[in-house]
Amino acid sequence: MPTGTLHSPSTQPGWRETSSLAGQGLTIGVLAMQGAFVEHVRILATLGATVREVRLPRDLDGLDGIILPGGESTTIGKLLEAWGVLAPLRSAIGRGLPCWGTCAGAILMAREVLDTLPGQPLLSVMDISVRRNAFGRQVQSFETMIMIDGMDSGLPFPAMFIRAPKIEAVGPDARAIAVLEDGTIVAARQGNWLATSFHPELTSDTRFHAWFLDIARANRGQNSGLTLASTAMP
């Protein structure tokens, strides 16, 4: 019997060493209206990023990237609108702020959302069409291994689908980066933006977060005219 570390990340076989420098010097926001935002905060912190929970418009200042977590998209959308975060967040992302939405977050990012409430407040920034709860109810929720196009190393990634949405269509500006065996699109990328139907934050595998931090760093390097990205990253 191991000494009381049954669930600590470093003892789980799926855990892989990621550079603890991936986030150093970056300030990443995690939208904290409702949902599994603490899981993202913890992983980003272990990767060395400065993390800020975003609940109000002022929390958006000076971010190098933002993660929109899983949760209930209807709840998160209403809170975004009620506290005046929806419009400034939309324009920040529109100006190229690196953004990654997991599950509910991907729904908020999509240009088109199917099977939702009429009038649900959405960011509608990314050229994808998403169907809510497309795999069914909770008893149909599942986990599997998938390949992610462009991430690294060619090793499969553990993907958890919880009342998950499907990406039904990808427009000309975005492209699919992960599909299930039946062809269902479950992740897409458009420039600095990532959308995933699944939840890397619920696993102990930090590669997806490290990848997003690489995107954020490259974007900052570009914008500031510094060569930081090329010197700091392996």
């Binding site: 799926g14 949902g35 209930e72 509910a104 986990e143 090793l155 553990p158 689908f161 696993t203």
Partner: peptide, 29 residues
């Protein structure tokens, strides 16, 4: 599941402990 990575790739496991607990994580806050 990830330890079995290559061999078990693409097999779906429904209602695992992580999936059951995961929905509650989505309800937080």
């Amino acid at each position: 599941a990830s330890a079995n990575g290559a061999a078990g790739a693409h097999d779906r496991s429904e209602s695992t402990w992580a999936v059951k607990r995961g929905l509650a994580q989505m309800l937080k806050g």
